[in-house]
Design a protein around this nucleic acid. Sequence first.
DNA 1: ATTGCAAATGCAATATTATTGCATGAACAA
DNA 2: TTGTTCATGCAATAATATTGCATTTGCAAT
Lengths: 146, 146
Amino acid sequence: MHSFVSKPIVDTGELLKKSKLKDTQPRRMVLEALAKINMPVSPYGIQKWLLKKNTELNAVTIYRILHAFNSACIVHRHPCSGHFALCTLPEQKGHHGFLHCHSCGLTEEFCSPALCTLEHGIAKKAGFDLENHMNEISGLCKHCKS
Amino acid sequence: MHSFVSKPIVDTGELLKKSKLKDTQPRRMVLEALAKINMPVSPYGIQKWLLKKNTELNAVTIYRILHAFNSACIVHRHPCSGHFALCTLPEQKGHHGFLHCHSCGLTEEFCSPALCTLEHGIAKKAGFDLENHMNEISGLCKHCKS
DNA sequence: ATTGCAAATGCAATATTATTGCATGAACAA
DNA sequence: TTGTTCATGCAATAATATTGCATTTGCAAT
Ligand SMILES: [Mn+2]
Ligand SMILES: [Mn+2]
Ligand SMILES: [Zn+2]
Ligand SMILES: [Zn+2]
């Protein structure tokens, strides 16, 4: 177990502006929670975190906000856990995947054009038009190996 | 929407024997449901299917059975939906991924050593020991494109 | 066949996650 | 400042998932 969380500096207002979504108080709260928690978290986990900061936010609202953020690609939903996290590679165009350490929970995002291409090929060979794909790798991170 | 479901002939007893899991009535029921439904289905979906056949099975039991089957790799859990389906490529060793048509629900399994290798490389480069990985591709199948 | 044990199941309770419809409120463009 | 559109709150409900414990059952050893 580690606590090597690097604190990302996230300007919530800036993020919202770039995403072209409406800038609202609840959205800023969710963004700030995601930034401060700095690891994948469930919608209700966000709600609990906000409660500890003495702020309340309706769970339905959190679901809807996360859905909007996900559509705008500023957050990702990690399918295996149903948790959400801020995109850490906003500058890298294309498909993003995840690495997850099942020991300490560390989550890392990666961008692999090769992987993207390969999966497009797999889809094509099967007669599919790829519209979306998800890649989640789990294992032991470098810290937990030792 | 199509109904090009190819009926797989599944010998539930045989499957259980090969998996080395205990051969029980509930397990045979779940296997038969999965075989007959022939597409990814939720645990409660299995329960409902069994009910329509006038058989009952406890939901907790279904969860536990699916977990055992998943560990034995005779069924897979599709992370994006939380649904389960029989493995359709039992003879192909290694990692299996999925293609899913969001229009008709058709699901196809694929086995790609190249993809597996690539993801092992991605993990290694990030300092991870890969222990598991999931690949789910969604799009339009060849039937739904036309 | 009988027995004994480990493993599977049923049951009850509870927790967690997710969705829907509708009334109200807030953002922001005009 | 105003008006429209979109977001939020609230209430209800559905769907998914887990836990502990008592009981039953598969199956291996006798
Ligand atoms: Mn990303
Ligand atoms: Mn398979
Ligand atoms: Zn770790
Ligand atoms: Zn289709």
